[in-house]
Nucleic acid binder design. Sequence first.
DNA 1: TAAATTTACTTTGCATGCAAACTAAACTAG
DNA 2: CTAGTTTAGTTTGCATGCAAAGTAAATTTA
Lengths: 158, 158
Amino acid sequence: MNVNVDLGRVMKHQELWLENQICHRLYMASNSVNRAYRPLLDALGLTYPQYVVMMSLWQTDGVMVNELQSTTQIDNGALTLILKKIADKGLISLIPVADDRRKKRVSLTADGKGLQEKAASIPNAIRCRFPSLNDEDSTALKLLLDKLLGDLQGQSDE
Amino acid sequence: MNVNVDLGRVMKHQELWLENQICHRLYMASNSVNRAYRPLLDALGLTYPQYVVMMSLWQTDGVMVNELQSTTQIDNGALTLILKKIADKGLISLIPVADDRRKKRVSLTADGKGLQEKAASIPNAIRCRFPSLNDEDSTALKLLLDKLLGDLQGQSDE
DNA sequence: TAAATTTACTTTGCATGCAAACTAAACTAG
DNA sequence: CTAGTTTAGTTTGCATGCAAAGTAAATTTA
């Protein structure tokens, strides 16, 4: 008695069923998480990608755009606009490097540094939205996502 | 000897570090997966969300738009455009329901049904991109993502 | 050292994702 | 039966994500 024929469906192409796919779950999870962040980030005047950039800078300030790109994995084209926007908000300054005038250094302003205190409560607020995931689950999930990311990163380079 | 101070960073706000976050991994994973699908889906003339809609219809044809929305989790506004586009490609027909003229039934055309054969190889091609994830890992990852999705779904309704 | 190439972004065109406003049809209360 | 409400989709404005073309500066070649 296979559950897959309960509704009289043909047993063909089960790999194409949404319930069987990791990728569709990732798609839904990423969007759901983004929606969960929105109300919290609205209070800071940031979008999620902008928040990711700020987090990266709070951790390591004064980096080149391409370093920020590889850390955050945000698309280059999008990153240009995102940096322009958070620069307009006065959170960062974009300074061309004297050595190599193609490069730009991204540095936090005082306001940008100060925003970290306001953001400090967000990670915990988000974690509380996943009551079903205990610490062990979280660790396991990170590990599995790292495996997946490792696979996908390596391949494009070869 | 804590690895977190290896580079002399202050031990403050570690929750804000990207490496410690599930959400940033989900963001990167979802985008990476989307990029992995692109060359495969280009051959079918579909984008990933369009492919998700087609998969849902291959599994259950002739549903209302709102059923398709809850199955695929694609945004309503986006879904309207996506349905218009795959209808323009001749893969589906959108027929207003006689009972309730607000509703529309989404039905596969012969071409739409035929496309399933061409798509049949995609799930396996994608799975091959994750050599590090064995079957056990895949099952575990699905389970963890389902937990996370369950948490996020329930909350917005309350 | 002049041409070819590479590097570090920027810009452009298209396709979502999302919240919010909007429309039309069906439903409920009085 | 009519006003108010809910439901099913659509439209709109803004912010990415992505591939591809474009730019300017640095590097390598010949």
